[in-house]
C-alpha cells in the first residue's frame, strides 16, 4: 500500500482537514491580525459537540440519519465558542498591546481543552466516535475509506461555498473590505464588529466540520487533538499565505501531501534511513514551515504584508 498514488491520496485527505481548520485561522488573522490560538480547541469542541449529539440519539438510528444532526450539533458548539471568545475575550482587548490578545488566546486554549478533559463524561482517555459504514473502496491502486470521502467532499463543498460567499455576497465584499482597510470599511457603513463576528463564526463552522470528519476518519476523539491539529493548520495557513482563504486550503494540501510523502519516502534517501516513518512526520512538517518562512515568508499565495501594528 505504499504506492505513490496511495500516499498522494492520504496526503490529500489529511490536507483537506488541515485546510478546513486553517480557514478559521486565516480569516480571523486577515481581519483582526490575531492568531486565534484557541482555534484548534474550537475544532476539538466541535468534534465533541457532534459526539454528544450522537450519544443522545436513539441507538437504532442509522449513522446516515445521525450525521446531519451531528454536524449541526458540532457546528452550534464550535460557533458559539468562537463567537463568544471574540465577543468576551478578544474584543475588549482590541486596542491593547499585541501580546495581550495572544496570551488571552493561549489561556482560552488551555481552558477549553481542560474543560473538556474535566467535565465531558469520561473524556480523560480517547472517546469512541462512530464511523461511516462501507469501504474501503478501491480506486485503481488506491484504497479509500468512506470517512476519507466524507472529508474530501466536505472540504470541497465548504471551499466552494466560502469562495462564492466572499466573492459575490454583499457581506463577503464587506469582509474583504474590512480585511483590507477596516477604518475605511466603517466609512462605507460596514459594521466591522459584525464582520469580525462572522469571520469567527465561519471559522468555527468549518472547524466543526473538520472535527466531525476527524472523528469519522479516525474513529476516536480525544481532548488534546486540538493542539496538534491547530498547530498543523496554522502551519498550513502560513504556508499558503496567511489571510488568503484559498492559500489556507492549498497550504493544507501541500502540508498533508508533504507529510504523507515524508513518512513514506524519507527513509529511502541515503543517509536518512533512520528519519522516516510516522514518528518523524511532525518534524518534517516543521522543517517545511521553516524552509517556507526562509524562502517565501509571505506564503505560497500571500502578498507581502507590512507589519502593521
Amino acid at each position: 500500500m505504499h504506492t505513490l498514488p496511495q500516499q498522494l491520496a492520504n496526503g490529500l485527505f489529511l490536507g483537506s482537514m488541515y485546510g478546513l481548520i486553517a480557514i478559521g485561522y486565516t480569516m480571523v488573522y486577515g481581519i483582526v491580525q490575531l492568531i486565534n490560538f484557541a482555534h484548534g480547541e474550537i475544532f476539538m469542541t466541535g468534534a465533541f459537540g457532534a459526539l454528544a449529539v450522537y450519544t443522545n440519539l436513539p441507538s437504532s438510528m442509522s449513522i446516515w440519519a445521525a450525521l446531519p444532526l451531528m454536524l449541526v450539533g458540532g457546528a452550534i458548539v464550535s460557533v458559539l465558542i468562537a463567537v463568544g471568545a471574540e465577543r468576551f475575550a478578544y474584543r475588549p482587548l482590541r486596542n491593547a498591546p499585541r501580546l495581550a490578545p495572544l496570551i488571552t488566546a493561549i489561556g482560552l486554549s488551555l481552558a477549553l481543552q481542560q474543560a473538556v478533559f474535566n467535565w465531558y463524561p469520561h473524556a480523560t482517555a480517547g472517546k469512541h466516535f462512530p464511523q461511516l459504514p462501507g469501504g474501503p473502496f478501491h480506486i485503481g491502486s488506491v484504497d479509500v475509506q468512506s470517512g476519507d470521502l466524507f472529508l474530501l467532499g466536505a472540504a470541497i463543498v465548504c471551499m466552494i461555498a466560502l469562495g462564492v460567499f466572499v466573492r459575490s455576497s454583499r457581506t463577503g465584499r464587506a469582509m474583504q473590505a474590512t480585511a483590507q482597510d477596516p477604518d475605511t470599511a466603517k466609512l462605507m457603513g460596514v459594521d466591522t464588529n459584525r464582520i469580525i463576528i462572522i469571520a469567527f463564526a465561519i471559522g468555527g463552522l468549518f472547524a466543526a466540520v473538520a472535527g466531525v470528519a476527524y472523528g469519522l476518519k479516525y474513529g476516536q476523539v480525544k481532548y488534546d487533538i486540538g493542539f496538534q491539529a491547530g498547530l498543523k493548520a496554522f502551519t498550513a495557513a502560513v504556508l499558503g499565505g496567511i489571510g488568503n482563504i484559498y492559500g489556507a486550503m492549498l497550504g493544507g494540501l501541500v502540508l498533508g501531501i508533504a507529510e504523507a510523502c515524508a513518512t513514506a519516502y524519507i527513509a529511502n534517501v541515503p543517509g536518512m534511513e533512520q528519519f522516516g516513518g510516522g514518528a518523524w512526520a511532525q518534524v518534517w512538517a516543521f522543517v517545511l514551515l521553516i524552509v517556507v518562512l526562509l524562502v517565501r515568508p509571505q506564503g505560497l499565495l500571500g502578498e507581502r504584508v507590512a507589519d502593521r501594528a
Binding site: R170, R173, A174, Q176, D181, A185, L187, M188, G189, V190
Partner: peptide, 26 residues
C-alpha cells in the same frame, strides 16, 4: 454623511466596481 478619507484609502484588492458597490453598502 459620507467621508472620502485623506490618502484615498480605496480597497486595493477589490475591483473598481466592487469599490463602488461598497460605497452603496447600506
Amino acid at each position: 454623511l459620507a467621508h472620502s478619507p485623506e490618502g484615498r484609502h480605496i480597497f486595493p484588492r477589490l475591483t473598481i466596481e466592487e469599490n463602488l458597490k461598497l460605497g452603496a453598502y447600506l
